[in-house]
Simulated assay, not measured.
Amino acid sequence: MKEVVISPAQTLLTTLRDRLYLTGAKPGCYNGDCGACTVLIDQQPIKSCLMLAIEAIDHEITTIEGLNSTPIQQAFIEHFAFQCGYCTPGFIMNCHALCTLHPYAEEEQIREWLSSNICRCTSYNEIEAAIKSVLQKKLE
């Protein structure tokens, strides 16, 4: 656990990046549309640009820096599910939560979860294939 001094109006994204130097969550739209700033709060994906840091007190926060060699990270590599990489941390956080919380997710649920993040460089086919490969391995 780390403690920092914050102002009541400071977002979780700003706190993570500027006070804790965890720069994996990326600033994008600052209004919750793009998902580049996605982190996990108590295992649930949250867009950190929309959450005040003060709201995260006493909650478990996981950033991309907290994921080490998870199956979804390897699947992103194997399926070339990224291009420039800017949105990748947000997608990985969201996809990790999906695979963890919904191990039997089907096509419609996968697409619904993917709709919360935006990538302008690649199609979502590779990301969807990465998710499906992780879910399939869980069933084996």
Score class of each variant (00 low, 15 high):
Q136H: 14
K47Y: 15
I61F: 11
I118W: 01
Q109E: 07
N125C: 15
A130K: 14
A25H: 10
E55W: 06
A97L: 02
Q44D: 01
Q43E: 15
Y104N: 13
Y30R: 12
G66P: 03
T15I: 14
F76E: 03
P89C: 05
N94F: 02
T11N: 09
E60F: 06
E55N: 14
P103S: 00
I127L: 08
K138A: 01
C29E: 05
A75Q: 03
R111N: 07
Y30F: 11
S123P: 05
T15Y: 12
L12A: 04
L135P: 15
R120D: 00
A129D: 13
L20W: 07
H102S: 01
E78S: 15
C29P: 13
I54F: 06
I77H: 07
K132I: 14
I41G: 08
L114Y: 07
R17T: 05
F76M: 11
C119T: 09
R111I: 07
D33S: 07
R111S: 02
C87R: 03
V4T: 01
R19H: 15
C99I: 00
I77G: 10
Y21N: 07
R19N: 12
T122D: 07
T63N: 14
Y104Q: 03
S123Y: 00
I64S: 13
T11I: 10
G28W: 09
P8E: 03
I72V: 09
E106I: 00
T23P: 03
L22C: 11
S48R: 14
F91S: 02
L114T: 09
L52H: 04
K47A: 08
Q73G: 13
L40Q: 10
C99T: 03
H102D: 01
T122V: 04
E55F: 12
E107P: 02
G90P: 12
K132V: 15
P71M: 02
A25N: 11
V4I: 12
L52A: 10
T70P: 02
L52E: 02
V5Q: 04
A9E: 14
A129P: 13
K2H: 10
Q43R: 05
T122A: 11
P89S: 04
Y30T: 15
Q109H: 01
T15G: 11
V134Y: 14
Q43P: 04
T14H: 06
L139T: 12
I110N: 00
A25L: 09
D42Q: 08
T88M: 03
A75L: 06
L40S: 11
I46L: 15
N125P: 12
C121K: 01
C37E: 12
K47T: 12
S123M: 04
Y30L: 12
N117S: 12
G24E: 05
S116D: 11
L50I: 14
Y86K: 06
A81Q: 09
P45V: 03
R120P: 00
M1P: 12
M51I: 08
S7W: 04
L114M: 14
S7M: 10
I41K: 14
A129F: 08
I61Y: 05
F82N: 04
E60T: 13
N68R: 09
L12K: 10
I77E: 11
L16F: 09
I57M: 13
A97V: 04
S116G: 09
A97Y: 01
C119R: 02
G28Y: 13
L101D: 02
C34L: 05
L98V: 00
N68G: 06
P27D: 09
E55D: 06
